[in-house]
Computed example of a mutant assay.
Amino acid sequence: MTSETITAAAAGTWELGDLTVNRIGFGAMRLTQSGEAFGAGATPSDRGRAISVLRRAVELGVNHIDTAAFYFSPLRSANELINQALAPYPDDLVITTKVGPGRDPSGEWLPHATPEQLRGQVEENLRQLGRDHLDVVNLRIVGTDSIAERFGALAELRDAGLIRHLGISNVRPEHLAEAQAIAPVVCVQNQYGIGARPEQDDFLRTCGERGVAFVPFYAIAGAGREAGASGADSDEVLAVARAHGATPAQVRLAWTLHRGPHVLAIPGTGNPDHLVENVAGGALRLSADELARLDSLPTGRE
């Protein structure tokens, strides 16, 4: 089987509340830009290419797309690209978005939203996506402060029917406990990948024990973060890739998915070839020895 014929179904499925998604999804952040910059100074992506990538993702069985209203560059908005490419939306497509951060029209970051401002952010996502409700909304935070007021505001919007399910992003275990005391949490979206710290592994396992999806971001990019993968993969990652005739990115995705059935992946790209490779990474099965070798990589090593 070639990469072109492998679909997202090869990775298996998970339930986000009452919504079934394939464990390989798609992250929309990189759709809006060409090159490495994100935020102020980003170069707009090619609209036609971005739309074709989204449509190809759905053709390949991707039914979980991660986005946000603050994913934009000059002339490009991830939400509006998704709307143009995919509306009317397939019945099984789950669109997850994030609120909390904001950016001004120039791309500069704004202070995170207050509980009162979150409704406006939810309504902005609804408008851009052309939806009457949002499938999943993650409250993304920075810092260690209580999230009770902000998550409570989103829970009220869930009760009002604007949001179907809730998640949290860039959080600690205490935030999950705090949120679950207010309303059900279907997913935690945190940075995670090969070389993760032990406390990150512990949190991943806690999510599994609670039936909460764990959705890593930067699983491929590692330390490259918004700029993407640095190309400086370890000898161990390269050796496993050679053994399978795979790319290092596919190995990183496969390792991530092996961490538990509740772990999802949302690799993002604006490159049609990389999209096919990422989806095919969901079919890669690593041996116990290979997993152990990758598990043993030093913390923080990318």
Rank of each mutant, 00 (worst) to 15 (best):
T256N: 06
L110V: 04
T2N: 15
G208C: 02
A11T: 07
E302D: 11
A28M: 03
F217Q: 05
E178P: 01
V62D: 03
A221C: 04
A40P: 13
R172F: 13
L60A: 04
D202H: 14
R197D: 10
I141S: 05
E80V: 06
R158A: 13
S146W: 11
A227Q: 13
T7Y: 10
L139M: 11
L238H: 10
Q180L: 10
A181N: 14
H258M: 07
G120S: 14
Y218P: 05
N22I: 04
A10P: 09
V171R: 09
D202V: 14
T13A: 11
V279W: 02
S169D: 14
I95G: 12
I6R: 15
Q191I: 07
E302N: 15
G195D: 12
D201P: 00
T96M: 06
H244S: 02
A292P: 15
L54R: 02
G41H: 09
T114N: 04
H133K: 14
H165V: 00
A181Q: 14
T13G: 09
I266E: 03
V94H: 03
H133Y: 10
A9N: 11
P198H: 14
V263A: 03
E124Q: 12
V251W: 08
L176G: 08
V237Y: 01
L264W: 07
G102I: 01
D104C: 11
H175S: 05
E178H: 03
V237N: 07
A155V: 04
I24P: 13
H165C: 01
A37N: 14
N278W: 08
V215Q: 12
L238G: 05
A243I: 08
A288P: 07
G245F: 04
D273K: 11
R140G: 12
E80M: 12
L129C: 11
A68K: 03
V279N: 03
Q189I: 01
V276E: 15
G152E: 01
R30N: 08
V240H: 02
G222N: 04
V212L: 10
E116P: 08
R285N: 11
E302G: 15
F217D: 02
F70Q: 03
A40T: 09
T247I: 08
I65V: 14
V188Q: 10
W255P: 08
I163C: 09
T269N: 02
V142Q: 13
V237S: 09
E226V: 14
I220W: 06
A85K: 06
R56P: 05
L118K: 09
P267I: 05
E123I: 02
Q191S: 13
H274N: 14
L19P: 06
D295K: 00
G120V: 06
E124M: 15
D202P: 07
G228D: 03
L110P: 05
R164L: 00
A85C: 09
L162G: 02
E108G: 15
T144R: 13
E156K: 13
P101T: 04
N83L: 13
V212E: 06
L253M: 10
P101G: 06
R242G: 04
E36L: 12
E302M: 13
G25C: 02
P298L: 12
S77P: 10
E116Y: 08
N190M: 05
I220K: 01
A179P: 15
G27K: 00
S146I: 01
W14M: 07
A40Q: 14
G12I: 03
I24L: 13
S3T: 10
H175F: 03
Q128F: 12
R158G: 06
S77L: 01
R140Q: 10
A87Y: 12
L286G: 08
